[in-house]
Design a protein around this nucleic acid. Structure first.
Lengths: 393, 393
DNA sequence: ACACCAAATGTGAACGGTCACACGCTTAAT
DNA sequence: ATTAAGCGTGTGACCGTTCACATTTGGTGT
């Protein structure tokens, strides 16, 4: 015999009469009341949507036992229907589903999580979420996760160690089942190590350093492609405007650049370390426009290339007439820069999708996980040409 | 007397000997075992971080009762400490906190949500999450929500009714306590109405239509500012390249434009309806470059302005020499377009913050909620000048 | 008619917290 | 001395679901 106080059902208080204050009506009595109430409820619902908003009393959403009573089965049977159990007679399943639909029953995720200790949540630790790359990846991740029956918990972070650690802490505190790290900074690894993270996680970087999973577009290869493109056009004096030193991607791109320069036996201009912004690109461009001891610039991303070209325009340095410029990322706008930017495209959405696939396979034990490195693609537009030649139009 | 099977504590199986298979050790016995285990655990932890990863058995995280036993208090006392209850002796609190720290206890959110029926989650329904505006807003929302002790659940959506409805459905299914809608499309309202949404929600649009909360930068005013700027420069033939018709913001901007044109008694060029992308702006620009029956263009956003200027460049239409161009949003890159774009800045982060503040006040009953409309700001750069005048440099 | 097996369904406990209330111990007021 | 009030703490029930196991049902072989 189970107990309760007040016994509110679908917003209707059922008085318990002579019973002690903390006693619930016995099962039979409730059953009768409930049938009645449910009937009323169905009517309300017809005019009023699934909510029971018009009832004045504090309302209570229907639960699995309510459904069970109305369908004339046990709560366990309802649970089995919800979990697509094999051993349910089709007619029973049908009836239960009808009731579920009728009363607008939604399973309580918290209760489910509590007993299964599975939250079906993937945590995303992301830095610079307002930039194109991370943003696109997160979007793809959300879609893929939903597809696989997971939800997302996103934690934005600054690049300092404390913030990263706090972010990870927040996620684990929410009992996420896996983590995707899109804050590809060196310090992330320290934080992960320090927390002795035991759940599956993926980082979206290209180094493959450490024994953890990582999925990414091959930054190193992309940088080599970009640099080789310039070399093949005939450039021998190439400057690299790089991303922040503590970003893994920035480092990988710089390594690719240096390798290619080295292989071609060219003079190595010291790279300029930037912060990914167009603003920085502009400042760098102002400086560079003064020197002019180069004929091409490889920028760590498209935004910096944009700022750079702006500064070159202001300084009457023609692109690509005087100087060729290559970017990285291929953000949607870069096709419309002036001149349209030659750049290296990376498929952010794809890495998002793959990282989810990988984690889901780890968590649920099935699904496909493909190879890890994704090839970048060289997009040749109008910001590059052979050195010394005037622009195409 | 409470019961359990197998009684695993911190990953160590405690054999129950003669007891029936489903009986837990009595409290006293567990207490002893636990003290021992906890001791071991503390040692492990010192080398190994808070996790108990090295234990071979299936592990179980410490719960409130484990903490209570180790601290020599009841679980209720621990609960009170967790919830910052007033009536706890400082020394007791201290002791409990020490144990919590020692064993690395984290409260189980699912259990808490189950009993309180509060998830402390705010749902975000967002369309086009990869665009600058929504993205920036979401980022700010995440920060503000975390600040206020809420987490986010994000659902991305297409612009069709079914997708919007599915998104809302997903969020309510997760029992979010409130919803922020950043998919400011007309159909959103239909979906909201149809679902008879009973929880607090905010839309980030400027119409203030309906009786719900909405927080936004005043799009209408912004569009008027932009248009007036052109008029004041002396333009009389102004074209508007608008956003998609079903976007509330696009409509508001168009209304502002039309109003200003009307007030100045100018000829009304029929607006061109676009899709926010630079690509569309380019196509529109190709067409417009052919006509040339105007001297200025007001674009619904910066991206379209970018594409437009690209097309103008290709068509040898000088900006601002032949045609002035104004954008909307002031994305970070627009200061480095060629020419740098005159545009209307709106503070996406601020609307994100305010919407959270509003909801938190509604949910928790305190906090400050400021006025709803936020003033946009006119940013004058180099893409506008008086008609017929040659570009500034 | 019988036991017997599989399929379909039901029962009790548990998950890890919070809430309402009860209880014991001081201290101040009668 | 007796009672009242209040602080600090403990107890039992409950939130809504799933799990392990128990029980019923219907069909079959002998």
């Amino acid at each position: 015999m189970d107990h309760a106080k007040g016994a509110q059902y679908f917003g209707c208080t059922v008085m318990t009469g002579e019973l002690a204050p903390a006693k619930r009506l016995d099962a039979q009595a409730v059953c009768i009341m409930v049938s009645h109430r449910a009937h009323v409820n169905v009517h309300i619902q017809a005019n009023d949507g699934p909510g029971m908003s018009t009832e004045p009393e504090k309302l209570r959403a229907p639960n699995i036992r309510d459904v069970a009573r109305l369908a004339g089965v046990s709560y366990q049977t309802v649970s089995r229907v919800l979990n697509n159990s094999e051993s349910i007679k089709p007619s029973t399943r049908q009836r239960v589903l009808e009731v579920i639909d009728e009363v607008g029953y939604r399973p309580n995720q918290a209760a489910r999580a509590l007993v299964t200790s599975r939250t079906r949540t993937i945590g995303v630790l992301s830095g610079l979420t307002s930039h194109y790359g991370p943003t696109t990846a997160v979007h793809a991740i959300e879609l893929a996760a939903r597809e696989a029956g997971y939800r997302l918990s996103i934690s934005n972070t600054e690049s300092d160690y404390e913030s990263i650690r706090a972010g990870l802490d927040q996620l684990t505190g929410q009992a996420v089942e896996a983590i995707i790290v899109i804050a590809p900074q060196v310090r992330v690894y320290d934080a992960i190590d320090d927390l002795a993270l035991t759940l599956p996680f993926v980082t979206l970087d290209s180094t493959g350093r450490g024994r953890h999973h990582s999925i990414s577009v091959d930054q190193y290869a992309g940088a080599r492609m970009a640099t080789r493109h310039l070399i093949e056009l005939g450039h021998t004096e190439i400057v690299h405007v790089a991303g922040p030193q503590d970003w893994i991607e920035a480092d990988a791109r710089m390594q690719g650049f240096l390798r290619e320069i080295n292989d071609a036996d060219l003079y190595t201009h010291p790279p300029i370390l930037g912060d990914w912004t167009a603003q920085f690109g502009y400042h760098a461009g102002r400086e560079l426009a003064r020197e002019r001891d180069f004929t091409a610039v490889f920028c760590g991303n498209d935004q910096m290339a944009l700022g750079l070209m702006h500064a070159f325009y202001d300084g009457s340095v023609s692109v690509p007439g005087d100087v060729s410029v290559v970017g990285f990322d291929d953000i949607p706008d870069s096709a419309h820069f002036l001149p349209p930017l030659t750049t290296v495209r990376q498929d952010f959405a794809e890495i998002g999708r793959r990282s989810v696939a990988l984690l889901v396979r780890e968590l649920d034990g099935f699904g496909d996980a493909d190879q890890r490195q994704i090839a970048p693609e060289m997009i040749i537009r109008k910001s590059t040409s052979a050195p010394g030649r005037m622009p195409g139009h």
